[in-house]
Amino acid sequence: MGRHRSSGRRPQRYKDVTHGRTGRGDAFRCVACRLDVPLVAPGTAHRNHCPHCLTSLHLDRRVPGDRAAECRGRMTVLSMSVRADGEWQLIHQCRSCGKLGANRIAGDDNPLALLRLALRPLTDSTRPIRALLTL
């Protein structure tokens, strides 16, 4: 529900990543919850995380899709970010080397997990009061 949805969506980069190493071709298995996830996702051409537990895998180095990272560690979700056009974006952090990555949410991501993540900073009730006191 982006505020600037009418201005047109940014075209997505063409995805030329092969998933040959998994041996399945059209699916990958989540490293955290072992869910079999199809590669096609509603709303995005760049699914990189499990729609159930939002966990990802550290495969890319600098450019998304380059598959150049030797780490291959588990990337757990760290926080929720909002792009300028209002799209939600997950921030992942590699548990093995600490690298950060961002990926848009997909249409079939678990809404409860997403909302729980988005509400995480607001569970500290003292901070909004401190913000009001600075006024």
Binding site: G2, S81, V82, W88, A118, A131, T134
Partner: peptide, 24 residues
Amino acid sequence: DNQLILIRMAVRPLAQPPFPLEVF
């Protein structure tokens, strides 16, 4: 650090949810 900008960033996802929050 500026607490107002911090709070603004914390509530930003809830201002533009990708799905209706009433269902929850």
